[in-house]
Structure formats: C-alpha cells, structure tokens
Simulated scan of single mutants.
Amino acid sequence: MWARRARAGLRGWGGVAAMAAVCALALAFVLLLPLTQSRVADDAQTGGQGVAEGVHARAEDCKDPQKQTLSPSAADGPTIEAIKNRTGARRKLIVGVDQNSYRWGYRDPNNEGAQLEGFDIDLAHRIAADLLGDPDAVQFKAIPTDQRIPAIQDGRVDMVVRTMTISCARIGEVAFSAPYFRTGQQVLAPKSSAITGYDGSLAGKRICTAAGSTAYTTLEEDRRTGRLPASADISTTVPNQLDCLVRLQLGEVDAVVTDGALAASQAAQDPTVELKGKAFTTEFYGVAMKKDADDLVRRVNQTLVDYGRNGWQTSYDTWLSATLGKDSTASKPPAPQYLRTS
C-alpha cells in the first residue's frame, strides 16, 4: 500500500481532541493536496458483471437505489476528457473527502505532515490512477457532510468519496457508482448508559446526527411512524460526524446515531463509548458524481470492478480490520447490478 503505515494509535479523549483541533484548523482552507508518494497501479481491466436492463430511476419511484447505476466502461467521454485536458498542476482529479473520520478519511496528527489517509482515500487514489495514470494526481477538498451534494452540483469537485450512502432521495440529485461498502445505522453511547440500542431506551434521550445524513432522515421518519419514541430529541445536528462524538463526551447529548462503520471507528478513538445493539438498517456507500457525468460514472464502476478483485481487501485489512474485525464478509457489497441505462 502506498500510504504511510507507521502511526501512533489515536485513543481516548486526547486523541479525539488532537484530531479535532487539526480538523478545525484545516477546515478553514480549501484543501489542495497533490500527494507525492509513488505507487504502482494495477493493470486496468475492462468489462463487468451483473449487467441488467433498466431505466434511469426517479427518486419518487426508486427501488434498490444501490442498483441504479450504469454498466462499467473504460471508454472516455466529455467529462473525462475535460478532466484530462486540465494542464500543469491543475491536471488532477478533484475529490471531495472527509478529513476527520478515523480510518476512513482523516489526518493523524502523530504522523509527519498529517497527510490524509484511510479507506476512502485509498479508493480516491485508485480512481485517479485509472483516470490519469497517476495515483497522486488528486486534489482533495475537505467538505462537511451537508455539503457533499452541493459541492458536486456546483462543480467544486468531480466526485465525492466520503462514506456517502446511496439513497433514493440522493439519486434524484446526483449520480452514484455501484456500491463499494456495506454498513448500517447503529447507536453509539457511553458504556455506562442505560441505552440498549435502537429501541424504547432512547425515549427522552438527546440524539446527535450529522446534518444532511441518512441517519437524520431515518430518525425523522421513524419518529413520525412510531418506530422511534416520540420523546426522543433529534434536534442536535452537526456539520461533521466527529462533532457528535465531541458533543457526547461533553455530555450535551446522550447518544449518536450514524453508520456502524463510522461508529466503530469512534468507539476505537474513545474507549468510554460503545455501539449499542445491532445495526437497524442496511446501507451501501457509493462514489457520487454529477447526474449527467455518464462517462465518469461508467469509468468509476470499471475501477470498482478491478478494485474489488485487487485492492479492496488490502485496504480493508490496513484501515478497518482493527475496528470492524478481520472478517470483511459483512462489509463487502453484493455483486453489482447496473439497472440504469441512461
């Protein structure tokens, strides 16, 4: 793997505070980070599997949103050509990422230079390698959770690789790749808490979520339908998921609801908290792009086919096995289906 492997573990409140401080400073700037570490890309392959006929789904009649994507292709098109035609230092893939999700996209302040690293960062490098022939030809832009879709629509980034769940609502606004990771919503709370999971123990509790997240949408709907106790307070939302952990540590909220993959990483940072109960949804992360960037969507799907064969497991072992377990079976996405045709 190309990323620096030596690191001191981030544990407890001190680790979180250190990383949060770095994040606060860095978020004041737009990150333009041409990474200089060299690595060798795997030979590109063509073709895919699970291709099926279908139509471009509308959000209002969406079913199985993770299947609403285009079949893989290594062909260039107008979107890819525009990226390749950038000159000089600007000839880079511009990717929206997180910089404070431990093990996904984060800066380890204990490492020299505190360069971005993690599971999502590895994938971004691989896409750049396939598109531009250079895994370092990436400009990373740190974006908050609630700015992922606007950043794509406004053209600030070419794509977002940031633990972004594919959902019916979102496919009405952006285009997604096939899934590259499986997870589900879970509850994170102090070990000493009486909260037992996503159940009646959340009655009267203050719950934190990231603004614009699928977690908040789920809580809102479940409280309306009665699955979540009506007395649960879901008014606390934050720009970035890590902020929820800080609120929890400060006693400002009683629980956090987020993707289990992220919650496990937060529990690894702070040994006083833990996941409560099992995941209560099934969700899939995808790479998000502009709705009309069909050629880019197809190329990313081609990259994911190749990456699934050679790269995904190595990245999982490096970044996520310590928090999610050595067996990656539950985290692997299903065989892709490409139901979108236009």
Results as ranks from 00 to 15, higher is better:
residue 103 R to D: 09
residue 17 A to N: 12
residue 301 N to D: 09
residue 188 L to V: 12
residue 55 V to Y: 11
residue 23 C to W: 00
residue 199 D to W: 03
residue 46 T to A: 14
residue 22 V to R: 11
residue 239 P to K: 04
residue 172 G to A: 12
residue 208 C to Q: 10
residue 227 R to N: 13
residue 333 P to Y: 05
residue 95 V to D: 03
residue 219 L to R: 08
residue 57 A to M: 08
residue 299 R to E: 04
residue 338 Y to F: 15
residue 16 V to S: 04
residue 196 T to R: 08
residue 26 A to Q: 00
residue 334 P to D: 09
residue 271 P to D: 15
residue 19 M to S: 13
residue 96 G to H: 05
residue 286 G to C: 04
residue 256 V to A: 03
residue 303 T to L: 10
residue 295 D to C: 04
residue 295 D to L: 04
residue 247 R to F: 15
residue 67 K to L: 10
residue 299 R to P: 02
residue 76 D to E: 15
residue 67 K to A: 12
residue 84 K to C: 02
residue 162 R to I: 04
residue 319 W to P: 11
residue 37 Q to K: 11
residue 36 T to M: 09
residue 177 S to A: 14
residue 313 Q to K: 10
residue 144 P to T: 05
residue 268 A to Y: 01
residue 76 D to I: 11
residue 139 Q to H: 09
residue 276 K to G: 01
residue 328 S to V: 15
residue 24 A to K: 10
residue 301 N to C: 04
residue 159 M to P: 04
residue 297 V to S: 05
residue 268 A to Q: 02
residue 163 T to I: 02
residue 190 P to N: 10
residue 264 A to W: 04
residue 296 L to T: 06
residue 267 A to D: 01
residue 200 G to A: 14
residue 233 D to V: 12
residue 38 S to P: 08
residue 281 T to A: 09
residue 125 H to G: 03
residue 157 V to W: 01
residue 251 G to R: 09
residue 278 K to G: 09
residue 48 G to F: 07
residue 222 D to M: 13
residue 342 S to T: 06
residue 48 G to L: 00
residue 267 A to W: 02
residue 296 L to M: 10
residue 126 R to C: 05
residue 153 Q to C: 09
residue 34 P to S: 07
residue 11 R to C: 12
residue 325 G to E: 14
residue 224 R to I: 07
residue 42 D to K: 15
residue 262 L to R: 01
residue 191 K to S: 07
residue 30 V to M: 12
residue 178 A to P: 00
residue 69 T to G: 10
residue 127 I to K: 01
residue 268 A to T: 00
residue 152 I to N: 06
residue 53 E to K: 05
residue 273 V to T: 06
residue 218 T to E: 14
residue 273 V to R: 02
residue 9 G to Y: 11
residue 323 T to K: 13
residue 279 A to E: 13
residue 235 S to E: 07
residue 60 E to N: 10
residue 63 K to Q: 11
residue 179 P to F: 10
residue 278 K to N: 14
residue 169 A to G: 12
residue 129 A to E: 08
residue 102 Y to D: 01
residue 246 V to C: 03
residue 52 A to D: 08
residue 334 P to M: 15
residue 87 T to E: 12
residue 82 A to E: 14
residue 41 A to N: 11
residue 132 L to C: 11
residue 235 S to H: 12
residue 285 Y to K: 01
residue 89 A to L: 13
residue 200 G to V: 10
residue 197 G to V: 08
residue 241 Q to W: 13
residue 305 V to A: 10
residue 298 R to T: 01
residue 326 K to C: 05
residue 66 Q to C: 06
residue 22 V to D: 15
residue 193 S to K: 05
residue 287 V to G: 00
residue 227 R to P: 07
residue 307 Y to M: 07
residue 207 I to F: 11
residue 201 S to W: 00
residue 330 A to W: 05
residue 329 T to P: 03
residue 80 I to W: 08
residue 22 V to Q: 13
residue 334 P to V: 04
residue 250 L to E: 13
